[in-house]
Amino acid sequence: MLGALTVHTVLVTSDGGMDNAIVVDAARTWLAGGSPYDDRHFLYFPSAVVAAAPQALLPRPVLDVAVPVAVVAALALGWACALRLHRVPLRSRLAALGLLGLAAGFAPFGQLVRLGNWTVTAVLALPLCLLLASRGRWVAAGAVIGVAVALKPLLAPMALLFLFARRWRALAVLVLVPAAASVTAALFLPDPTGFLTRTLPFLVRGDDAFLRLYEASPAAVLPRLGVPEALAVLLGLLAAAAGVVCAYLRWRGPGPTPLRLAETSAALMLSAFLVSRPSYNHYLLVVLPPLLAGLPYAGAVARRPWFWLALVPQLPG
């Protein structure tokens, strides 16, 4: 299944997928002396430009093959980390059937591979971070999130988990790694403040017609149903605030540490997805593996019917 998906992606995409192409084109622009932020759809920190530079130097036929293979490998590794977080053997039926179910039954999995979206870094980094934290290696966990944020700031809300746990050194590492990487990278750009002066205002406005077609946040979806935009934004903010409160209560609640880590993190990330602009349905793949791998626990969220009902809209087809 994974092999077929990889081969299909290689055959039908270029530059490793439409989303990967945006980042690689930004790196090519930089290497040619231009500003990567001339493309308003490039929404990453300056550190991502430098990280994408090796791809920009590869021949396109090599890139077309290497990126889908790397994305599938990262998704599989993320699932493996989620399993080990909950101490599930990698040769168990859950390990095999879970990966097969994600690939065949969860549409965002295939979307992420075909797009080559850098969300894949978060899909790998989140369970790896939680695995390290569950073993007491919080500073290393903070470094993992920091590197992921430097590549794509999707996991920035995970700082709240470190705040809940009062892991101050780890939190400092989480913040300093992407900050140092981005500031250093920005010094080599012709437009060092491009992210602040172009990208941030664009994200705050969230008024891009192309991105709006694919957005899944309440602020984007509810106005399509006739809800005033201001009310939609307010509802999203209230829901996100409630989600953060629920995340804190889950962290303080009972249960095995791995399960608390997974469910608290999922609540934080889902809350962020409610208000982030843009927000896409493939972001769900970030939180699903750590939750799904928690099935062996009697009180796990993944054992409740509403968990599976919520996934129905993401079935392929």
Rank of each mutant, 00 (worst) to 15 (best):
V175E: 02
L187F: 07
L171F: 00
L203Y: 05
V204W: 11
L189N: 08
R198H: 13
F202L: 05
A172N: 07
V175S: 04
T193L: 15
T199C: 13
L187C: 15
A172M: 06
A181R: 04
L200F: 07
P192T: 01
L196S: 03
A179I: 09
R205D: 13
A181F: 00
R198C: 10
A186F: 13
T184C: 13
L203F: 08
T199K: 14
S182Y: 03
T184M: 12
L203D: 02
L203G: 02
T199A: 11
R198T: 07
L174T: 04
T193C: 15
A181I: 03
T197Y: 10
L189V: 02
T199Q: 12
G206H: 08
R205L: 12
G194C: 13
L187H: 12
A179H: 06
A180Q: 06
L187I: 09
F188R: 13
L196D: 06
L200Y: 05
P190I: 02
P190C: 01
D191W: 09
R205M: 12
A172F: 04
L203T: 07
A181N: 01
L196K: 02
D191G: 07
P190T: 03
L189C: 05
T197I: 07
A180P: 03
V177A: 01
L176W: 10
V183Y: 12
A181Q: 01
F202G: 08
A180Y: 10
T193Q: 15
L176G: 10
A185F: 01
G194Y: 12
L171N: 01
L174R: 03
V177R: 00
A180K: 01
P178D: 08
R198L: 07
D191R: 06
V204P: 11
L176A: 14
F195C: 10
L176N: 06
L171A: 02
V177Q: 00
V173L: 08
L200H: 04
A172Q: 00
L196Q: 03
P192M: 04
R198E: 10
L174S: 07
G194F: 13
R198Y: 11
F188T: 05
T184G: 15
P201N: 08
A181G: 08
V204T: 09
T197G: 09
A172S: 05
L196P: 04
T184Q: 11
A181C: 06
D191S: 08
L203Q: 05
L174Q: 06
P192W: 04
A186V: 09
F188N: 12
L176Y: 11
L174G: 03
A172Y: 03
V204C: 11
L171Y: 00
A186G: 13
S182N: 02
R205S: 13
P192A: 08
L187Q: 14
A185I: 02
S182E: 07
T193R: 15
S182V: 02
R198N: 06
V183F: 14
V183H: 12
G206L: 12
